[in-house]
Amino acid sequence: MTIRRMDHVGIVVDDLAAATAFFVELGLRLTGEAPVEGGWVDRVVGLEGVRAEIAMVETPDGHGRIELTRFHAPSGGGGDRHAPANTRGLRHVAFAVDDLDAAVAGLRSRGAELVGEMERYQDSYLLCYVRGPEGIIVELAEDLRGLQA
């Protein structure tokens, strides 16, 4: 068996519209939305009575996707929206951007905030973590060497 590619990352949210708008503001494009329910999804995710909505967003190059899911049933446990970056589990998703200042400004207009500070890593990258809706942490990296990541 050989893995062909990473298909997507799934993020469960309460406010699907706000989470979708956040990623669209970042530059991903919405490729689809759909309700999801029935025995097949119950069996796949190991829950009973699933009723959910999903939105799929994709990077401009088409190589990275995020599935945003809002479960209407069954109800799940609440996560800590303010969990620090060193909390166990999936903690952040990273994106290469052309202009870090512009990306952060656009996300701030949607209510996002810096987790720490913008920092320069050697002469290679300008980096930061941004916390968006649902406590989602996104790492943004601007390549300062003039290369496209």
Rank of each mutant, 00 (worst) to 15 (best):
L100K: 13
A102F: 09
D101A: 14
R120C: 08
R5G: 10
V12T: 07
A21C: 12
L127T: 07
D61K: 04
G111K: 12
H8L: 11
C128F: 06
V130R: 05
G135I: 02
V57F: 04
H82F: 10
F71S: 00
G77N: 14
H82E: 15
A18E: 14
D14P: 11
V115S: 02
T59D: 09
H8G: 07
A34C: 02
V44H: 05
G116R: 05
R120D: 13
Y129W: 04
T20D: 06
V57C: 05
L126V: 08
R81H: 13
A18K: 10
A102V: 06
D99E: 12
D101H: 12
S124F: 13
N86D: 15
G146V: 03
G135F: 01
A17M: 08
P35C: 01
R70Q: 11
G39S: 11
P74L: 02
C128D: 07
F23L: 07
I11Y: 04
P35D: 07
T59E: 09
R5S: 15
D15W: 06
R145P: 07
V97Y: 09
G49V: 01
A141Q: 12
R4C: 09
D14C: 05
L140W: 01
I136A: 03
L26K: 03
A96P: 01
G78C: 11
A73N: 06
V50L: 00
E117W: 02
A141P: 02
R91Q: 11
R4F: 14
D61Y: 03
D80E: 12
V13K: 03
M1K: 14
E142K: 09
M56T: 10
D80Q: 13
A19G: 05
I11E: 00
G38A: 06
I137K: 00
R29N: 08
N86T: 14
Q148S: 13
E67K: 04
I136Y: 06
I11W: 04
G111I: 08
